[in-house]
């Protein structure tokens, strides 16, 4: 117990005196996950909206695939991407293995199904009358779609935050394709894994606390957004 307390004290100390290396690690984490999230939104929101609004052959299959991919094990994604990006793999010529870009790609693969699947369910929850009202007010089909997305905004924001939570906490995939190279592809989660291996529990815990704080902030935002969404939904009824 005293050991735990001691580690915790040292961890807090490390956070209070953030050194450059630690800051760089935190910054890279945010950069990789933030970029991945942004691109996941660019792919996921239109995809989820399309699946939610259009009726086409194979739609059920796409929804099932998206829901399954929401739970993809990161290690599997990492391994798959490693084999693709390896110099001996089909995409080896891109020389992306062990770069932040490879980590971003891995996290996009993990994040976009969440964004798409949750966007889909947010969009189908928008009452059909919204689409009709928008059409009858003279909206083009593009404008109508945009209006439906806007009405689904709380659900979509919750989707984005859920995806952010997943990528920030993820270690399996980025460890494999990023390589945890010091000063280049080392992020919070891979550092925690490594420092734990080394027995450097203080540093691992310091980063763990930072990560936890970030998660806490993210989840708090999610709570606020959902509360607001629920309140407005009640007013609707």
């Amino acid at each position: 117990m005293s050991f735990l307390l001691e580690s915790f004290k040292q961890a807090v100390n490390l956070i209070l005196n953030l050194d450059r290396e630690l800051l760089q690690i935190i910054f890279l984490s945010l950069k990789v996950s933030g970029t991945a999230l942004l691109l996941a939104i660019v792919i996921g929101v239109p995809l989820g909206t399309f699946v939610g609004l259009k009726r086409f052959v194979g739609r059920e299959v796409v929804i099932t695939i998206l829901n399954t991919f929401m739970g993809l094990p990161p290690v599997v994604v990492g391994l798959f991407l490693y084999l693709m990006l390896s110099r001996s793999g089909p995409l080896g010529f891109l020389t992306l293995l062990y770069t932040p870009t490879a980590m971003i790609i891995a996290q996009i693969i993990l994040a976009f199904p969440i964004v798409a699947a949750l966007t889909h369910s947010a969009v189908v929850r928008v009452p059909p009358i919204i689409k009709l009202a928008s059409k009858s007010l003279g909206a083009t089909s593009f404008q109508t779609t945009f209006t439906v997305i806007k009405e689904a905004r709380y659900g979509i924001m919750a989707a984005v935050i859920a995806a952010l939570g997943r990528v920030m906490a993820e270690v399996g995939a980025i460890l494999i394709v990023g390589g945890n190279i010091a000063g280049y592809t080392r992020v919070m989660t891979t550092t925690i894994a490594m420092e734990t291996d080394k027995g450097n529990f203080e540093l691992a815990m310091a980063l763990g606390i930072v990560l936890l704080l970030i998660s806490l902030i993210i989840n708090f935002c999610m709570f606020l957004i959902q509360k607001k969404g629920v309140r407005e939904a009640q007013q609707w009824g």
Partner: peptide, 12 residues
């Protein structure tokens, strides 16, 4: 032309 629905269809 335009049509007003019985449920109106209010945007949030």
């Amino acid at each position: 032309i335009t049509l007003l629905f019985p449920e109106v269809g209010v945007f949030n």
